[in-house]
Design a protein around this nucleic acid. Structure first.
Lengths: 212, 212
DNA sequence: GAAATCATAATTGTATCCAATATTGATTTC
DNA sequence: GAAATCAATATTGGATACAATTATGATTTC
């Protein structure tokens, strides 16, 4: 095998469970019984447990010793925290990346946006959303910063999915993304950072509104 | 049992390994063979694997599928990222907490400082260091923010431990902590936040200098 | 009838065994 | 002699069996 990180069953089942959560098949607060899930996903309990641990440290699942795991319930405070942190960290990443963004990066970002326009499965939309942001941050080459930002994005993915059920929210999000992308194309760093901040603030506001 | 989170072997072995890493028994880059470690810590490989996964998502261990885990090597970029993030997030936490900090919180913080003065085992010093910071941030009641800050602190713990071998660094750190604590006592929010920022900047500079 | 107690079942965590992958070292081939 | 090939070993990931813990429900006690 050539790849330097062989994909393991634990990882792929984590991905599957993430999809089930984001698509609403597994609802917030719902208990995740290991035997039932392992049967449903046709894996043993061993990789399943590793998957649950991953999701727990991702924030999508809450687990307590000997009592089991359940889908995380996101409250107002969690959403506020996630978006306030993203609002501090993501502009930093974009700024660091900006001088090194290539046409290829921009192409990748645009590809994600185009795909997102045609997609409506929540989990895939969520992945494409991250692809877009990631394409713009990655040229910063700041791995540790990106790791934290990735975590925050995964954790807020559930909130964003719920938000996407808000009327016209996906369209607004797409428009904000296009503005950000155009600013990057124009070499307008300040404009890009401002657009990113605006995008995060608007998303936060809509999600917060929805949850009262 | 009354406690709502029964401690599991995976967690306690994770703590043990963390100590071994922070105390330098396990050096950065060193491979962590499961069988050897499980034998040394007298647990089976099952909880050991969970512990390694935890440490990996904490950032103290790097793991690659089927190839095994090794103690993380921290490069310059990682340290810069960790401290820049902390410099953005921790003042936010302190500011949110400030109006709600009680005398009890201050007492807890001081207790950690006093204990740290008499301690010289790296892993315990690291824990006390976190206790101090955590005591001041916790009244914010912003769990998600605190979780991320905790992660960043755990990840930079290794760097700080190495830094503590710098001559006079622990004394400087203690002094900076005292200034911060005093500002909190005086109800001087701006001063406290400034002191915290200064503390993080100085720690970052010393660590960076040490690593060239 | 409500609370406490205890046995039973359901569920998670751990140990052990097996399979899949990677690493090593000898052998071959040019 | 160096690179490629392949067998043998070491090491990790996964499946199953067992132990520890928690949840459930009947029984008792007041």
């Amino acid at each position: 095998m050539i790849s330097d990180t062989q994909k393991t069953q634990a990882e792929s089942t984590a991905a599957k469970i993430r999809t089930l959560i984001l698509n609403g098949t597994l609802q917030p607060g719902q208990p995740l019984r290991q035997e039932a899930l392992s049967e449903q996903l046709s894996v043993s309990r061993t990789p399943l447990r590793h998957a649950l641990q991953s999701l727990a440290e991702e924030g999508l699942v809450e687990t307590t010793g000997y009592k089991g795991a359940r889908v995380a319930e996101l409250d107002r405070g969690m959403i506020d925290d996630l978006f306030e942190m993203r609002l501090l960290l993501e502009p930093l990443a974009l700024g660091s990346a900006f001088p090194q963004i290539t046409k290829l990066d921009l192409a990748r970002a645009e590809m994600a946006l185009d795909a997102a326009d045609a997609e409506d499965e929540p989990s895939r939309l969520s992945a494409l959303n991250w692809d877009f942001h990631h394409a713009l941050y990655r040229p910063s080459n700041r791995q540790t910063l990106l790791r934290t930002i990735a975590q925050l994005n995964k954790a807020s993915a559930l909130a964003e999915v719920i938000a996407s059920s808000i009327v016209a929210r996906p369209e607004k999000s797409a428009a904000e993304h296009r503005i950000l992308l155009q600013a990057c194309r124009d070499g307008d760093e300040a404009g890009a950072i401002a657009a990113l901040g605006e995008h995060l603030r608007l998303a936060h506001r809509d999600i917060r509104t929805r949850k009262d």
